[in-house]
Simulated scan of single mutants.
Amino acid sequence: MTKVRHLLGISGGKDSSALAIYLNDLYPQLTIEYYSCDTGKELEETYTLVDNLQAYLGKKIDLLQAAENSHLDPFDHFLQVYGGFLPSSVTRWCTKKLKLDPFEKFVGDDLVISYVGIRDDENREGYISKKSNIQTIFPYRKNIWSEDVIQKVLQNSTKDIIAKFYEEEGILDSIKLERALKIVTTNVSPEFDRDRKLDSLLKVSIKAFNHVVFRFIKEFTNYPLSYLDKEDFPLLNNEDGLVREDVFRILRESGVGVPAYYEKREFEVDGKKGYYSRSRSGCYFCFFQQKIEWVWLYEQHPQLFAKAIEYEKEGYTWMQDERLEELAAEERRTQIKRDAIARASRQKKDSPYLLDLLDDAEGEGCAACFI
């Protein structure tokens, strides 16, 4: 039988960490390899989380580093290669060089199923490798399949095949089968697009849809999953659909704990109280940070903020509209805090974590870094 590797990347954030715990506890029969791409610029809490996870899982988490023979940290090595040109939301060389390249080197030409921690309450796809030997699965979601798989399965040209599979799998009772077949045989159109068709089929039965997709993969594709049997992939029967609240619950109940940088800290401006923290994992100088997170870094980790300033040379800055030296001014920090308090009051959420107050925080950034 052809060997297929099961891989899960640990970013140091809540979602990937909880996913490792979730899969370990629910599917101990899966032999999962864990890895983390170390940029050399992570917060110390990230390494603490990796240590806690290793203790819980009883397995080593491989630390992958780009430019492993360099005398510099991976980030500093490639910053030198790029002549001091800082990465940005437009030119994300850090993602490719520090995350994707080490991951794909780790994979090589092996057949791989990569488990990614994008939740059921998020509307994003995440990193999908262009290498045909890597297939991405999203265990938190009701739809565990990547967009490329869904496109193949729900083509109008395949509807008869999919209908046949629904009938032959024998999972649904007669009433649900009739509903599923009606949906399957309806063409995708502007009035009934692929997303709506997918959602309709999942509402009939997630389990039945998964089994049909798996059979399609086995018979008509060369995805890594096509080399496995049903009993080798127990997620076919999973119908959970996990959201943010579940992720925090898993981390707390396991004893691994929520990464400390998510915990909000109180500040006061004009007699009003506000809170700040980090909303994401990743490098301490990540250019996707919001202004209030930079203020958090300045006040909670001044030595790291000072290091981040040192990178701003020859016109290169972490933010397009402001240098860190300008943001560090007391008047500017006070205004950013005022803005954060005003924004939080509009959200009207009672949460111990900043990311619950900044709804768009998780929708930004590189999926390869933050999952």
Rank of each mutant, 00 (worst) to 15 (best):
Q65R: 15
Y82Q: 13
L43R: 01
H71W: 07
Y82N: 14
D73M: 13
Q65A: 12
L49D: 07
L79K: 10
L57T: 03
S70G: 09
Y56G: 02
D62Q: 13
K60P: 00
L64T: 07
P74A: 09
L63N: 08
L57E: 05
G83K: 13
V81C: 10
F85G: 06
L64Q: 04
D76N: 11
L53Q: 06
V50W: 02
S70A: 14
S70V: 09
Q65H: 13
E42A: 08
A66L: 09
Y56H: 08
L63Q: 15
K59N: 11
L63I: 15
D62A: 14
P74F: 07
Y47K: 08
F85K: 15
D51F: 03
S70M: 10
D73K: 15
T46H: 07
N69F: 11
L86F: 11
F75K: 03
E68G: 13
E68P: 15
S70P: 10
T46Y: 02
A55P: 00
H77I: 00
N52H: 09
Q54W: 04
L57C: 05
Y56A: 04
V81Y: 13
I61T: 03
Q54M: 10
L63A: 14
T46A: 02
H71A: 13
F85Y: 12
E44N: 11
G83I: 05
H77R: 01
V50T: 01
D62M: 11
F78R: 05
